[in-house]
């Protein structure tokens, strides 16, 4: 997949990196190690995976509102995602990404969620609200 896709800006800033993609919701409170950014929820398809430095593509937050603080803490310690793309941001996520200064966009075309896979290389421009696929070959 290639090209640039337009979404909506949730938090400004740009970042690029390898993607970590899941179709399952993530509970940062209790489901992610706050010190390492490793997903610890038993049975989650990303169980044992690290978020550090990744562009996280996931459907929604789940669980406690306290998850907001875990996202902020991971951002401050550089153990969290460098950018986030999701279908629709909610209040908790808005608080987390603005406080943690994580470039984030939502409302991108459905095609993006259909075709993106873990390991793709993406550039997220949270200010313009765009995502660009940088895959080569």
């Amino acid at each position: 997949m290639s090209g640039v896709y337009q979404g909506r800006s949730i938090c400004a800033g740009t970042a690029e990196g390898e993607t970590l993609v899941t179709k399952q919701g993530i509970s940062f409170w209790g489901g992610v190690d706050p010190d390492t950014g490793v997903i610890t929820e038993v049975g989650h398809e990303l169980y044992g995976k690290e978020m550090a430095g990744k562009v996280l593509v996931f459907p929604a937050l789940k669980g406690s509102a306290g998850g907001m603080w875990i996202i902020i803490r991971l951002a401050m310690t550089k153990k969290g995602p460098v950018a986030i793309i999701l279908p629709k941001a909610d209040t908790i996520l808005v608080g987390a990404v603005i406080m943690g200064e994580i470039p984030t966009i939502d409302s991108v075309p459905d095609d993006v969620f259909q075709m993106v896979k873990s390991g793709d290389h993406l550039k997220v421009d949270g200010t313009k609200g765009t995502v660009e696929f940088l895959n080569t070959g």
């Binding site: 938090c11 629709k88 209040t91 808005v94 608080g95 406080m99």
Partner: peptide
């Protein structure tokens, strides 16, 4: 500043 940016974005998103 960030707290009010969150308020503005929460307004828009919802």
């Amino acid at each position: 500043r960030k707290i009010l940016e969150v308020m503005v974005k929460v307004y828009e998103v919802n």
